[in-house]
Write a protein that binds this DNA or RNA. Structure first.
Length: 496
RNA sequence: GCCAGGGUGGCAGAGUCUGGCCGAACGCGUCCGCCUGCAGAGCGGAUCAUCGCCGGUUCAAAUCCGGCCCCUGGCUCCA
């Protein structure tokens, strides 16, 4: 069975065939480091992460690059609020973003390149475009001539005549065609350009702009344009042609379209074989979640409230290109979904470690269910990374595990072991969920022993018929995050 | 206006490429039963969908074709 992906270039689901059958070059359009990351960003990250993990599972050697845009007017707008200079502000957000990524249990990319560290490569690329007749200089700025690239518009299906102008009025006057876009911008940052983005506590615009970074170039001092960075960094760290380029749906035009144009004009080669676009996350009011609208939940807040597993389950409960809304309802459903999986895993591992698990016992139903779950998981992931379907197969596995444990006195050791391996391999390695972090009965650590102690007191109360006291102890434990469940074999607990 | 993606049960959300296994997955919710001092978890069962509208193709359509309505995103910084 082969992987199929929806390619924005063709608008169709296509078989995935990387240039080199053994490896995949993957680029993800990362963030501008001017605001804390919000859940919408996490949606992109987590889906790219799972794509990466699935490609690993399929046996590809994945080279994954994800940039930080640390040169941008919006960063300059934060000077005074979150730092003392553009570079300083950018650095503080890079740090918080990396922390968020860790918190989300993302597999590391191979490189996280920054624009500020790739200016020479950007300048080289711009020169190449000028040499080849695709770009021109005007007053120290350099623009890409969209009419020179015949295929301009092929990614977003835009028609040049229908397009509105890109750039500021000043830029417009320098351009040959309204749709031309800047590769290099002369000078520093114009105070007028940042005023609208400034918040309370920001430095005066003129002062903030003083701290904006500029670089020497063949056209004088200036700054790189927005789109050119990704082309330069993708080519530097991967290759002139990469296999998969992923980004937010909002970037299709103009950002990705321009990347295609400038890259392919410069190299004469295909820039990216497959373009995958992650749909934006919607806020409860059905609007997109975005920094500028201020209607977001930050990654840090979400992780704090729900933890990485619930957040990931929530994000993976919707296919990467489908609409998804973040609300208290949708996140608590994800919580229930994750917990059910985790309980199944814990029951399975607990049973496996008990003396009731026997290699001689064989439950055909359990084993068939494990087999089916594995097949369905694989089929779902291969079908354009259908994470919702993949999650569904693990639920069915959970149902089979629970049914087996409920219906039998002696357990099927081999079947349970296969089930546990499936959780770990697919739920763990591929979906990036972690199970079994709760403290098991009989765990040797102090917290566990103390809970045991409280539970034994509660058992005495129950035996004595003092249910009120027993329930009070249960409620108190609950308040501390210890969930108590009475079973045939005595009380069990798990930490939330 | 132009481009892209959506409209599936109370909610959420697969399936649409490759028409039939879809009288529609997984789940949340609700109800009943088992278990249980109670609760939770689990198990079993039930409830819940004329798949946006109209027309067409076909033995057969959520899935293909045509028209229309509505929503979201992009066309300005944005994952």
């Amino acid at each position: 069975m082969t992987l199929r992906v929806t390619n924005s270039l063709s608008g169709e689901r296509e078989p995935f065939e990387p240039q080199d059958p053994d490896s995949v070059l993957l680029y993800y359009c990362g963030l501008t480091t001017s605001d804390p990351a919000h859940l919408g960003h996490a949606r992109g990250w987590v889906h790219v992460d799972v794509m990466h993990r699935w490609l690993d599972w399929l046996g590809y050697d994945v080279r994954h690059v994800e940039n930080f845009t640390d040169v941008n007017e919006k960063i300059v707008a934060r000077v005074g609020e979150d730092g003392t200079s553009e570079a300083d502000v950018a650095e503080s957000y890079v740090r918080s973003i990396i922390e968020d990524m860790r918190g989300l249990n993302l597999k590391r990319a191979e490189v996280y390149p920054r624009v500020s560290e790739h200016v020479p490569e950007i300048i080289d690329l711009v020169e190449r475009l000028i040499d080849r007749g695709y770009a021109y200089e005007a007053n120290g700025s350099v623009y890409f001539d969209v009419t020179s690239f015949e295929e301009y518009g092929k990614l977003s299906n835009q028609d040049l005549d229908e397009m509105e102008a890109q750039g500021t009025p000043e830029e417009q006057s320098e351009k040959r065609n309204p749709a031309d876009f800047a590769l290099w911008k002369a000078g520093g940052v114009d105070p007028d350009a940042i005023e609208d983005h400034q918040h309370e506590g920001a430095a005066p615009p003129e002062e903030a702009c003083e701290t904006a970074q500029t670089w020497e170039s063949p056209w004088g001092e200036g700054r790189p344009g927005w789109h050119i960075e990704c082309s330069a960094m993708s080519m530097t760290h991967l290759d002139e042609t990469i296999d998969i380029h992923v980004g937010g749906q909002d970037l299709v035009f103009p950002h990705h379209e321009n990347e295609v144009a400038q890259s392919e004009a410069a190299t004469g080669e295909t820039f990216a074989k497959y373009w995958l676009h992650v749909r934006l996350l919607d806020a409860p009011d059905d609007e997109k979640m975005s920094s500028s609208l201020g209607n977001f939940e930050t990654v840090a807040e979400a992780l704090d409230s729900y933890g990485p597993n619930v957040v990931r389950t929530f994000l993976l409960s919707t296919a990467y290109h489908s609409p998804a809304t973040y609300s208290s309802e949708t996140i608590s459903e994800a919580e229930a979904r994750y917990e059910r999986l985790e309980r199944g895993y814990e029951r399975a591992t607990g049973a496996l470690d008990s003396t009731d698990a026997r290699t001689k016992v064989e439950d055909e139903q359990l084993r068939a269910a494990v087999e089916t779950a594995r097949e369905e998981f694989e089929a779902a992931m291969n079908d354009d990374f259908n994470t919702r379907g993949a999650l569904a197969s693990l639920r069915e596995l959970t149902g089979a595990v629970n049914a087996h444990l409920d219906e039998h006195e002696a357990y099927d050791y081999v079947g349970l072991r296969e089930a546990v391996e499936t959780y770990e391999e697919f739920g763990g390695d591929v979906l990036g969920l972690t199970f079994g972090t709760g403290v098991e009965e009989g765990t040797v650590d102090l917290a566990g022993e103390l809970v045991e102690l409280v539970l034994s007191v509660r058992e005495q109360e129950r035996e004595a018929g003092n249910y009120e006291r027993a329930d009070q102890l249960r409620d108190d434990l609950e308040a501390l995050g210890v969930e108590v469940q009475d079973t045939h074999d005595g009380p069990e607990f798990r930490l939330e």
